[in-house]
Design a protein around this nucleic acid. Structure first.
Lengths: 333, 333
DNA sequence: CGTTTACACGAAATCGGTTTCGAATAGATT
DNA sequence: AATCTATTCGAAACCGATTTCGTGTAAACG
C-alpha cells in the first residue's frame, strides 16, 4: 500500500504537510496541495483506515449484534439489517458483525472497544442478556431494536395501537372468538402486543383466548404451529387468530390446514411484520407492516447522531406501522 | 481503555516485556509473567485491535461482498452468510460488510486494503463486475460463491448433475414436456444449470421449453412469475417445470394457480436451493438442497487456509447437492 | 529600512501495540 | 577466581496516520 511517507519522499514535503494537503487543511498553499494530490492520485493512494482509527479513535464502523440461532437466517431481521446497511453505507460507515466470544473473555463490550467500533446496533439478542446489558450501560452509543423493560436507546415499530387495529378489524368482520399468539413476553415489544390484545378483549367484553405461560421467544413458524395446536385443544376452534409475527401466523395456518380447516373461510388469520413471504403464500397474509426502510433509515440517523454528538441516551424512536389487508381474513358467515 | 503502557507503569516492567508476557513469549520468566497477567486481569485489559492490526498487518477480519438490491434481503444468501459467520466466529475472525463506494473512489479493493481486511468472501455480486474483478486479481485471498466464467477461487454447489437428477425425476414421473426457468446466464452457476437442462432434453429427445434470451439475473419470485407467463404463452401448459431457484419456482406456482391450475395435479414443479420457505408453502416444494452448513464451513476453512498460507489461487470447492422430494411433483395422469 | 504580521511548511510527539537487538544478571564451567 | 553461557528484560524503532507547535519567509506596515 502507498503510504503518506512515500508521497512525502517523492514530493519532498513532510508527511505532516502531505496529510494536511490530503485532508483539506487551509494552511496548505494551492500549489503544493496540487502537487501532492497529483502524486497521490498517480500512486492510487488511500489512507490506511487502521492507522487513522488508531490516532483518531474513530473507526467509521458500526457494530451489529445478532442472535446466533435465528439471526441472519430470518427474513425479518435480515430485512432490517439490509435497510440499515444501505443507509449506513451512504454515510461512509462500515458494518461489523459482532460476536460474543465468552471463551477468550472477549464479550460484546470488550470486542467493541477492542475493534474501536463507533456505535452498536442491537438487531436481535439471544440468551446472553448480560453481555447486552454491559453494552447498554457502557459509554458506547448503542441503539436497540429489541428493547428490554426500559425503553431507552431503542427504536421499534408502534405495536400497541397496531394490534388493537388488527383486532378491531377482525371484530368488525364479525369475529368474536379471537385468539392471540404471543411472542417473547420477556421483552418490551412482545409484552406490548400481548397487553394490547388483552386490553382489546376487555374492551369488547370477551374472554381472551391465549395460552398462559407460553413464551414464543423466537417468533418462528414452528412455534406458531405448536401454539395453534394448543389453542385448539384448550379452547376449540376460534373465529380468528391474531399473531405476533408473520412466521407464527403461517405456522398457525399450516396447522389449521393440516386439521382440514380452510383459511380464511373457517378461520381468519392476521400476522405482524409484513415479511416478503406474505405475498408469496396462499392465501396472501393480511398483516401489520413494519416500515423496514424507515426503521433502517431512522436507526442509521439516530446512531450516527449519537456518535457525532456523543450522546449515549435518548428517547425511544417509534415508527408507525400499518394494517395491510390481503386475503387471509374474511367476514364471518 | 487500559493500555500496555498502563500495565507497564504499574508493574514496572517495560511495555515490550508486558507485550511478550501477554502473548506467551518463552523468554519471560514465570514470576514476571504472573505479575503482569494478574494486573492485566485486574484492570480488565484487552488489546487494542486497531493498534495490533497496524503493526501486524492483519486485522482478523474477513470482508463480505453483497449485492445491494437482493442482498441480505434474500433468504438464500443470508442463510449462507449465517452459516459462514458461525464458522468464522469460532476461528476468531470478524465479518465486515463491504461496500463499493464509487463516489469517493473507495472501491472494493481499496476499501479492503484500507481496512486491512485479511480475506474476502463474495457472496453475491451485482452490476459492478469491474470492482469484483479487481478484487479477484488482487493480492488478497478472495473466495467467490458466485463465480464468473473461470471457476478459480470459488465455492459452489454441484449443479449440473443435480439439475439432471431433478429432470430425470420429473421424467420418471411420466412428464415429457418439461419446462425450464433459467437464472442468471452470465454467471457460471446459472449457465451450468441451463446447460444441464438442455443436455437432458437432448438425451430424452424432447424439445426444450425455455424462453430464449431471457436472463433472470436475480432469481426472484417475480421473475419466476413472469417467466411462467411467457412459457404458457409461447408453449402452452407444460407437464412439469424445473426452476433454477426456489423463489422462481414459487413465482411460477403462483402464476399457475392464478391461471386456475392445480399444483401438483396439473403441473409438477421443482425448485433449487431448499430455502426455509419450501416447507412452509403449500404444496411443500420439492427441490434440490444446497448444503448451507457445509458451504459455510468449507468456505470458512478455505478462506482461512488461504489467509494463513498466503495462497491466492486454488481449485474450486464443489459441494454436493441433494434432491429433496416433497409435495410439488406428482406422477402424470 | 526596521518591525510586525500572515502564511506556509516541518519537526516531533502521539495513538497502542510488536519486534529486534543489545545488555545485565545469574548460574555454570574450567 | 575468571570466563562463558543461558536467561530475562528493556531501549528503541516501527506500523501509518494526525496534530501541535514552532520557525522561516515574504508581504505589509509605520
Amino acid at each position: 500500500m502507498v503510504t503518506i511517507q512515500e508521497i512525502s519522499r517523492i514530493t519532498n514535503f513532510a508527511p505532516s504537510t502531505v496529510s494536511k494537503a490530503l485532508n483539506g487543511y487551509p494552511e496548505i498553499s494551492q500549489k503544493t496541495r496540487e502537487k501532492i494530490l497529483k502524486v497521490a492520485n498517480e500512486l492510487n493512494y488511500f489512507p490506511n483506515a487502521t492507522a487513522k482509527s488508531l490516532v483518531k479513535k474513530k473507526s467509521n464502523t458500526i457494530g451489529v449484534v445478532f442472535e446466533v440461532e435465528y439471526g441472519l437466517n430470518n427474513l425479518f431481521f435480515s430485512t432490517i439489517l439490509e435497510a440499515f446497511r444501505k443507509q449506513v453505507e451512504i454515510k461512509g460507515y462500515d458494518i461489523l458483525l459482532l460476536s460474543n466470544n465468552t471463551d477468550n473473555g472477549l464479550n460484546y463490550l470488550n470486542h467493541c472497544r477492542s475493534k474501536q467500533v463507533d456505535g452498536v446496533l442491537i438487531v436481535s439478542k439471544g440468551s446472553n442478556k448480560d453481555a447486552i446489558n454491559e453494552l447498554l450501560e457502557s459509554e458506547l452509543p448503542v441503539l436497540s431494536f429489541d428493547p428490554e423493560e426500559e425503553m431507552k436507546n431503542s427504536i421499534y415499530s408502534e405495536s400497541y395501537f397496531a394490534i388493537k387495529k388488527a383486532c378491531r378489524y377482525l371484530y368488525n368482520l364479525g369475529h368474536k372468538k379471537i385468539a392471540f399468539i404471543q411472542g417473547d413476553l420477556t421483552n418490551y415489544i412482545g409484552k406490548t402486543r400481548y397487553n394490547s390484545y388483552m386490553d382489546f378483549m376487555i374492551e369488547i367484553g370477551n374472554e381472551p383466548i391465549v395460552i398462559k405461560g407460553l413464551n414464543n421467544s423466537l417468533y418462528t413458524y414452528e412455534e406458531g404451529y405448536k401454539t395453534m395446536d394448543m389453542i385448539l385443544q384448550q379452547f376449540g376452534l376460534p373465529d380468528a387468530v391474531c399473531s405476533s409475527s408473520d412466521l407464527m401466523a403461517l405456522g398457525a395456518i399450516a396447522y389449521l390446514k393440516d386439521q382440514g380447516y380452510k383459511i380464511p373461510d373457517d378461520v381468519s388469520v392476521i400476522g405482524f411484520d409484513d415479511i416478503k413471504m406474505c405475498e408469496i403464500v396462499h392465501p396472501k397474509l393480511s398483516t401489520i407492516r413494519q416500515d423496514y426502510e424507515l426503521i433502517g433509515k431512522k436507526a442509521c440517523e439516530t446512531i450516527i447522531s449519537m456518535i457525532e454528538n456523543k450522546i449515549t441516551e435518548f428517547d425511544p424512536v417509534i415508527i408507525d406501522s400499518e394494517l395491510v389487508i390481503r386475503d387471509s381474513c374474511k367476514r364471518r358467515r
